[in-house]
Design a protein around this nucleic acid. Structure first.
Lengths: 107, 107
DNA sequence: AATTCATTTCAATAATTATTGAAATATGAA
DNA sequence: TTCATATTTCAATAATTATTGAAATGAATT
C-alpha cells in the first residue's frame, strides 16, 4: 500500500452512498450483492450507483463477477486490511501496541 | 458511530496531505507534533495545513493542546477504532470472524 | 433476430473541496 | 509596550466530485 492507493481507497469510502454500499457488502460476505439489489437498498439511481461502484472497483475495495444478467459485487477484505495496516504502520514510535494485528474480517 | 460521522472521518483521511498528517501523528503517539513542524514534514503552507487540521479536528480524528506558542496535535486512536468497528460491523452475515477485535493502536 | 431486463456510459450541470496569499490573532520575549 | 514567532482566518479562485436523464451495451428469453 502506498499513499496514493490509500487515498484512493479512503476516498472510495468517504461518501454516504458508497459507504452504505461497502458496509452492505462487508455484511453480505462472500455471497455478494448484485447491482440492482444495491440500487434498491441504497436508494440511488442505477447510473449514480454505477458511478460509485466504478470508483470502488478502481480503488480495488470491491470486485465483481458476472452471473447471467446480473453483476454481483463483493467486498475485497484483503485490500481493506492492507489499508488498515498502512494507517497504523509504525504506530506510537514502535511502542508495544499490536497495531499490525487487526483484520476487518477473517473470511 | 453513525453514517455521517463515519463519512466525515473517512473524508478527513481521504486526501494526501491529511493522510500524511494522520500517519505522522499515529507514529508520534502521545507525544504529538506541533503545527509548524508538520508544515515542514508535509510540505504545505501554514494556511493549507490549518485548513486540513481543522477538518480533521471536526471529524474528531485528532485533538490538540496549546503549549506555549505551539499548538500540539495528537491522533485520536479511540475515534479511529470506532470507525474501524463501524466498517466491519456484522461482518460476513455473522459468520465467525473476529472483525470487532482489531485496534489501530492500543496506547 | 426481436424483446426484455440489468447495467453502464455519456454529457451537462450542480455541488463540494482545495489552494493561494494577505491580513488577523495570540503567545512569549526583549 | 513593542517585537518576533506560531498559527488561524478570510476571500477569491481553481480543481475535483456528484447527480441527472437519456442513450448505449450486454445477456438471456421468446
Amino acid at each position: 500500500m502506498n499513499i496514493s492507493s490509500a487515498v484512493q481507497a479512503l476516498s472510495a469510502l468517504a461518501q454516504e452512498q458508497r459507504l452504505n454500499i461497502f458496509r452492505a457488502l462487508v455484511q453480505a460476505g462472500s455471497e455478494g450483492i448484485n447491482a440492482g439489489r444495491m440500487s434498491e437498498m441504497i436508494g440511488s439511481s442505477p447510473s449514480a450507483l454505477s458511478f460509485h461502484l466504478k470508483s470502488m472497483l478502481e480503488a480495488k475495495l470491491i470486485s465483481y463477477e458476472q452471473k447471467g444478467r446480473f453483476v454481483i459485487y463483493q467486498a475485497n477484505f484483503a485490500v481493506m486490511n492492507q489499508l488498515l495496516a498502512y494507517l497504523s504502520e509504525n504506530c506510537c514510535q514502535g511502542t508495544s501496541c499490536d497495531a499490525e494485528q487487526f483484520n476487518i474480517c477473517r473470511t
